[in-house]
Write a protein that binds this DNA or RNA. Sequence first.
RNA 1: GUCUCCGUAGCUCAGCAGGAUAGAGCACCAGAUUCCUAAUCUGGGGGCCGUGGGUUCGAAUCCCGCCGGGGACACCA
Length: 588
Amino acid sequence: MTSTDIFAALRARAIAALRDLLPELPEDAFAKVQMEPPRDPSHGDMATNAALVVAKPARQPPPKLAAALAERLAALPEVESAAPAGPGFVNLRLREGFLRAQLPVILEAAEAYGDSAIGAGRRADVEYVSANPTGPMHVGHCRGAVVGDALANLLDKAGWAVTKEYYINDAGAQVQALAWAAYWRYLQALGTMLTEEEYAANIPGGLQYRGEYLIPVGEALKSRYGDALAPGALPADPALWLDTVRPFTVEAMMAEIRQDLAALGVRHDVFVSEAELVRAGVADRAIATLAERGLVYEGVLEPPKGKTPDDWEPRPQTLFASTRFGDDVDRPLRKSDGSNTYFANDIGNHGDKLARGFDELVHVWGADHGGYIKRMQAAVSALSADRPVPLDVVLTQIVKVMKGGEPVRMSKRAGTYVTLADLIEEVGRDAVRFTMLTRKADAQMEFDLDKVVEQSRENPVFYVQYAHARCRSVLRSAGDPSDLAEAPLDSLADPAELALIRRLTAWPRTVESAALAREPHRIAFFLHDLAGDFHVLWNRGREDTTLRFIRGDEPEATRARLALVAATATVIRSGLRVMGVTPVEEMR
RNA sequence: GUCUCCGUAGCUCAGCAGGAUAGAGCACCAGAUUCCUAAUCUGGGGGCCGUGGGUUCGAAUCCCGCCGGGGACACCA
């Protein structure tokens, strides 16, 4: 594969030179060689630790190796100069011509610039959102949705074959409670004489979902079934209606969730239903597999340390020996009523993923599920013992929604939480998505409704969009020339122009490192920096008219700069695409 | 009590799988607009990277202890 990543290219050059200098050295001695931008730009365009890394196995002092390596590298056509530095680094300064030559590379690749092959086509299943189908999505789900979607896009760009998956938790007690709540709205639609409290007193677990969003579901049940499920508008035996109302309600909730996701621009490839998996016996099969491997037993757990639940009692349970795979305690597979625990069903879910042939599993969960990671990884290890498949979990922290400097109170019970639909309506899809990616997923985040719509430098969404719009504005006023990849580029020599080119060439390695770290927020930071470089250049043109992009008196220089602008726009678009944000043509 | 994440400028946060003199934005101070959008930009001050050890050529980064904070801890999902 021909990489467009010049850092990878020069790293290969450095390794080749070292191999030549030290033919005795085993190949794995070069594994830790890095070629990266130095912190201090005055050190040059790239720096490598190659001499430091190789010094020990080569039994030579690093400075001596660095000097020899520098001499070799200095002879390369891409390299202007190379010098040993510090304890054994080699700093490289690239020829400006080589840097400029990256612009046609970018323009020809277009948005494919930065695509990588490190994923090597491995099949990755990215499961995200997976909100319980018990109500509309709120901002908490939203972060997971955006992070997951961007991560999936990122992995795709970096060479994985990605499936975007949603796991519907439609088999547990909460869905049961949802059905009871929907049934209440149904009774209301039929004109029941009961009060809410009277109804709530007689249902298992109480009336848990009181939000108004179930009212339409009650109406829909009425128009579909009349009073057949509650003759005389009186509560009937659940055996008569529960298996009808539950799936009906789940379907209604999922329709709403799909709508919310669509509004966010999130589209999953696969929706997997927990209930269906259970019906298909997937969970039982997975547990049977574990049992065959001697990992399932009947046992009594210690009470949890710290705070013991009031109703705790020692009791034999069906347990999975997850401690053998690094978990803290073994985990129950069956509830006291004999049905599967959520964990047992999720083992089935993962068994199903493995059966579908994925090479890597990635999940995005809320941080409150952090305690669940070890047991799930244990289960996947146990199930994939013959062909290890890694399970990576990305946790997303809480989002605090702020308005006018005050936190917006959220309560699902009271039905006052901020729904995703509200949020999108208020600030727009692109702002929501971009902002959700301006923090590391695992860091708490304040989402300031006022700032996000503010059109100022403080707002990174705006800042990046504005840079793209400016690029487009320039290209439009130049008549959108199409043959910029052939433009002569020698006139691009101003430090600000070269700085922008250097930034652009860092895009491929940014994609790779972000994908490997599973950190899509790095894309947002990169774009912010890139936008900054562009704004700087733009402003130089204010002070120094010879630096303007379009110069009527200098057609060649104009073409060169248009090539630079077009490349910048391309990379911004490419990054925004990963984030799922629409690049704008103008800022009206 | 156990597990887990976190602690970097006054504030909000980056810091790229250990690298050279630790960065950005906001806030603060001083500047730039006959111009392709000043919705932007330039310059400046500001840090014991919570703390004590360890690993090594080299640590904000890796390991251990401590302090401080978030989250999770059978039969919820």
